[in-house]
């Protein structure tokens, strides 16, 4: 599997490493994907890197690669963001993978081996949901709102109504809320806020977890929040050019 830029892998690692320390990557002809729960079982993260994400991709037999994020991160730090990355996994020797970074400009090449782990992964079945509300907005804006409000209080409430979408945080000595209304005047789709809902709803989530979920803003200019009463929120970032996505499910706080 050869990626044109290592930056994609770096960003994916940054987006999951606070939640997941080790995870199985499932490789098949469609691409590479992973699903993992955080240790508290509060967040489920799913990553899909489709074949379209790669400059070249070949997977003759489906394989599962058990990756420890810490050494993987150390290896990836050795790659320049613009360098190509080739990941090689051998079906005959499933003890490790090889990573080759190529800098075409400088004619430099570096090669690493990463030992694979035998991870007893727990795969969760996520039912197809009919969401009560969906909000799409610029990922940078969502990130700023979450980062700012997480400083105010540890509970982040998201309310959807005719007024728009309201993000509220309450701390011991301050409270703040931010309201976004659908924007239709903005030309660029990536800068638009779109809100759809069947019934008004209001749900509360742990702000520190939501903060971790905003790291994936680096992977996509837009984010979609899907909510339904008393269900986990789905926060989805679609990568450009059908390259794949990263999705987080965060369990709500309840009475």
């Amino acid at each position: 599997a050869r990626l044109p830029r290592s930056a994609v892998l770096k960003k994916i690692l940054d987006s999951v490493k606070d939640l997941v320390k080790e995870t199985n990557w499932d490789c098949n002809e469609e691409g590479m994907s992973m699903q993992a729960l955080d240790t508290g079982r509060i967040v489920l993260v799913e990553v899909m890197l489709r074949e379209a994400a790669f400059e070249s991709y070949a997977c003759e037999v489906p394989m599962t690669l058990g990756i420890d994020m810490e050494p993987f991160g150390k290896v990836l730090r050795c790659a320049g963001g613009d360098e190509k990355v080739t990941i090689k996994a051998s079906r005959n020797d499933q003890d490790h993978i090889e990573l080759v970074f190529e800098n075409e400009e400088k004619e430099r090449m570096s090669a690493f081996e990463l030992k694979l782990m035998d991870i007893d992964g727990e795969h969760m079945a996520v039912p197809d949901a009919e969401w009560g509300a969906e909000i799409s907005m610029p990922s940078s804006e969502f990130k700023k709102i979450v980062m700012d409000l997480a400083e105010i209080g540890s509970d982040l409430t998201i309310a959807v109504s005719k007024l728009g979408v309201t993000f509220t945080a309450q701390g011991n000595n301050c409270k703040g809320s931010m309201v976004l209304q659908p924007s239709t005047a903005v030309d660029k789709k990536s800068e638009q806020v779109a809100i759809s809902f069947t019934e008004p709803l209001e749900m509360t989530f742990a702000a520190p977890y939501m903060k971790m979920i905003t790291k994936a803003a680096a992977l996509s200019s837009t984010v979609t929040l899907s909510l339904d009463e008393a269900c986990p929120i789905c926060v989805r970032y679609e990568m450009e050019d059908n390259a794949g996505h990263i999705k987080y499910y965060l369990a709500p706080k309840e009475d």
């Binding site: 079982r41 795969h123 499910y249 369990a251």
Partner: peptide
């Protein structure tokens, strides 16, 4: 106050 739920009450193992 509010209690943090986990995902197990929503998602099951296949």
């Amino acid at each position: 106050g509010l209690r943090q739920g986990t995902l197990h009450s929503f998602f099951s193992k296949p």
